[in-house]
Design a binder for these strands. Structure first.
Lengths: 362, 362
DNA sequence: GATTGGCACTCGGTTGGTGAGAGTGCTGGA
DNA sequence: TCCAGCACTCTCACCAACCGAGTGCCAATC
């Protein structure tokens, strides 16, 4: 469910393949696995022993490769779709590849520059999120999921109280990540501008810069400091704000690049349906992404490791992003077939998350 | 491109089918067309003359139906996928069906009630839009497109100026349809709360309730009324607001139910790809929807009538929605295969648009 | 012990042919 | 104007044969 695999430090040779073999053979078997993954990702065809020796410098004959493949299959790292077909990696094989064998492939400088300029041209938060999605979708050729900065993890920039004609109060919350939320509040008492101004000033003084998650205490203090006749108002405001912010419906995500799923390069056994359906379950999807993301760096979840059955044929690459101080306020990710270009996808997700963090406090 | 067909009033019998035949034959041929459309929509199979006589009370033999079919084919209303297959309606055939033959089928009372309660439970605009999309997607089993209330067509509820720490001004625009937009403004001069308060008050007094589209004049008056040293500020605010509101990027749409496209009931000749790609071109898509929507009621665009090539195998059913006084502030629509249940889809779109208009000013 | 060439075996995909069935257009008669 | 009958066409499903790719195993070699 997370990117953590066996510790890179330990001597894990016989760990993976079970059978006792010499270190050098073990090494080559992993080379074979890497070659299989890379070839299969590129060609989308099960790869046989001969092709493998032709296309990669393994330095051994097909027969030897066949023996190695038998061992890899024994270990559950590769499989045959059917007899007399080549091998394809299993989820477990991809996992090992991602954890141990994949070489990071940083983006090119022009790519990085393109990300930077494209993101910095955004005019507001909606635009930032939309652009981030398009970047991921285009760089990876897959589906991008971008979460709006979570309200609970954001800081408060400003709290505004707007009286409307009908004796209702509009409460507007503006976060330091640029989100704006609003709720109506029925106020029983008449409001004069003075009281409202005072309340506004006090609320903002008490809450400025605080996390929205732990803003409750701040509100309590404000209510007490108000003259008794206005305490109910202060409490009501506090209530509506905390209620609005704690609502799960306020966690929003944006999907981009679904058209990429229909490209010929993506053929799913079960068809597109389960994938599209999983993507529409936004609440569940967000839960999955949240669970698999740890604070540090990029996380990968492969095939059946995903809780959602609809994503059993896909892999998910996520990263948190946030303000430049490293706090994660939201998640962004790329979803594609398990047979994806992991190094490229990881690099793209990481890069966009990084620039996004930089651009974010607009 | 719009729903307007031949005037219902005119005697259009020979108009459609070209050949001179008796009125009663003409009548029956249209019955045959209706039967073909209904059967094909239901079974997804080309329908032959025998099946047709068996399943519908046409009162004539298959041979006669064949003659009628030949006439309908001659008129371009139906076609054969290949020799020795049944007939399927052409875009033109669907058009005639929608304009002349389809019977409105209102929703059931429980359905209406479900729409009403589901929409009224929404907590804010985002929620309203999302729920409307889910309703359409679920009722029609197709893709729903819901546009956020267009800023240009909304009225202004409130304009807020928030000074931020870094000497920048945050301008927040709140519309009477519930949308909130915000922009940052670099202000050269120092701001004291008094000036800001005065400007805010004047702006709101001058603009309250006005359409955002024609708010420019109102701003001009405010700038003149301000003391000379603050006129630049007023002008700058006016500029940033008008700029923000006129941006095309602020027209937002939400797609729901894309998973429905992958259902077995939707098989497109060209596959899903062109459809999904067309749906991702949100700007173009919105333009298409806007063009085809007239103010009165539901509009239908069928197959190749759609400007977007990717939607050549789909039909689009749209309706405007807006405040209860009938003004259209945005569009909502359902997109599915040309072989869709037109009466049902039209009824669903109309109903949701209607209730949405009622619920909208949250 | 590791590697390799050779060889028999398996099995999926393709090709080509055939027959059934569905649907049509046409024609002549009511 | 309608309709029954008939010959014709075309698709689809089925089947059989074939081909090629790839494997596993074994004996020989380094």
């Amino acid at each position: 469910m997370s990117e953590s695999g066996p510790e890179p430090g330990c001597n894990s040779r016989t760990f993976y393949l079970g059978t006792e073999v010499s270190a050098v053979s073990e090494e080559r078997r992993l080379d074979v696995l890497r070659a299989i993954v890379e070839d299969y990702v590129r060609t989308r065809e099960p790869v046989g022993s001969r092709i493998l020796t032709e296309r990669h410098q393994l330095g051994v004959s097909p027969a030897t490769v066949r023996n190695d493949m038998a061992a890899l299959e024994e270990a559950g790292l590769i499989a045959q779709p059917h007899t007399s077909a080549g091998r394809i990696p299993t989820d477990k094989g991809y996992r090992l590849f991602v954890d141990q064998l994949a070489e990071v492939r940083p983006l090119t400088l022009p790519q990085k520059r393109a990300i930077e300029t494209f993101l910095s041209e955004a005019v507001d938060l909606d635009d930032v999120v939309a652009r981030a999605g398009r970047l991921i979708a285009q760089l990876t050729g897959q589906v991008a999921v971008v979460q709006y900065p979570s309200l609970r993890r954001s800081g408060l920039r400003h709290l505004e109280l707007v009286p409307t004609a009908e004796g209702r109060l509009l409460v507007v919350v503006i976060t330091d990540t640029g989100r704006v939320e609003q709720r109506f509040l029925d106020v029983p008492v008449d409001l004069d501008d003075g009281t409202l101004g005072e309340l506004r000033a006090r609320l903002n003084a008490a809450t400025a810069g605080r996390r929205l998650a732990d803003i409750g205490d701040a509100f309590a203090g404000v209510a007490e400091a108000m003259p008794p006749e206005h305490r109910p108002l202060a409490t009501a405001v506090a209530e509506v704000v905390t209620a609005a912010l704690s609502e799960e419906s306020e966690e929003r995500i944006v999907l981009t690049g679904q058209a990429n799923l229909a490209r010929s390069s993506m053929r799913f056994e079960q068809g597109l349906r389960p994938v599209l359906e999983a993507l529409e379950e936004q609440v569940v999807l967000l839960g999955l992404l949240t669970d698999m993301t740890d604070d540090a760096g990029v996380a990968v979840s492969i095939g059946h490791e995903n809780r959602l059955a609809g994503l059993a044929e896909t892999s998910v690459v996520t990263s948190g992003y946030g303000s430049s101080d490293g706090d994660t306020v939201a998640i962004l990710s790329s979803i594609g077939p398990t047979r994806m270009d992991y190094p490229g996808t990881i690099a793209a997700v990481r890069a966009v998350a990084r620039y996004l963090s930089r651009v974010l406090p607009s």
